[in-house]
Simulated assay, not measured.
Amino acid sequence: MERFYQYLRHYTSHPLEENEQQLLAKAFVLRRFRRKQYLLQEGDICRHLSLITKGAMRQYSVDDKGVEHIVQFGIENWWMSDRESFELGSVSKYNIDAWEDTEVLQIGYDDWWTLRNAIPAMRILTAEMDKRHSIAAQKRIHAAITLTAEERYLEMLQHQPAFVQRFPQNMIASYLGISPETLSRIRKQAFLRGD
């Protein structure tokens, strides 16, 4: 739980009372996932929010032709869930699995909302998470409709270099919405330019 308390202190200066720490410790569960083990499978309902404390995960859908479309990567201090499924109790259209051996702190829907309403620091954290998620989604949509494939790759290199180091090229290409061959060409051109 100390990792979570550090995470919470990073996003809010509101101190936690002793009883609030105890409530949080009871609500969060540490879970471990082996590489390629599912956190969530398409067709299930997402019942937990999961904060990655160690490792890396990906969220993706698979189309009728069996092609994976990655919508999110997650590494340490990133939350993984299908927010639509979690909030609405709807069936998920996504898979979330561990790309590396991964540890997460997991909290269920009822505990999340109870603690959000009971602990001021959790309200602040929720507002910050929602703000960051909204901004990230807006940037992702903007990039998809206005930037070239090369610009999207260079933006990822600038803002999320850990993704390029921890996920294979075919997954990076899927996340960027391009073919692995196009990404290979872009990387080669960037290397020749010294980017």
Rank of each mutant, 00 (worst) to 15 (best):
Q41Y: 02
L183S: 05
N117K: 14
Q169G: 06
L8E: 03
Y60Q: 04
Y94C: 08
E68P: 05
F167P: 00
Q21D: 00
S85H: 08
F73H: 02
T102N: 05
M122L: 10
N19L: 11
D111R: 04
L30V: 12
V29A: 14
A121M: 08
L39D: 05
K36V: 04
L30R: 15
F167L: 02
A162K: 13
A98L: 02
R9A: 15
D44M: 12
Y175E: 07
M1N: 03
Q21H: 00
G89N: 06
Q158R: 15
A190M: 02
E155W: 10
I96N: 09
L8R: 03
L49I: 15
L125T: 00
R9D: 14
Q72V: 06
A127H: 13
L192E: 12
K188V: 05
Y11M: 01
L176K: 04
T146H: 10
F33M: 13
M57R: 01
S50M: 12
W113R: 08
M80P: 07
R166Y: 14
V164A: 15
P120H: 01
H10Y: 13
F4T: 03
L157N: 03
H14N: 07
S61D: 10
L115T: 07
A162V: 12
R3A: 15
R193M: 12
P120Q: 06
E2I: 11
I135H: 03
D63T: 09
Y94I: 09
P180M: 09
Q160L: 11
G177A: 09
L115K: 09
Y153E: 02
L157F: 01
W78K: 07
M171E: 13
L176C: 07
D130L: 15
P168D: 07
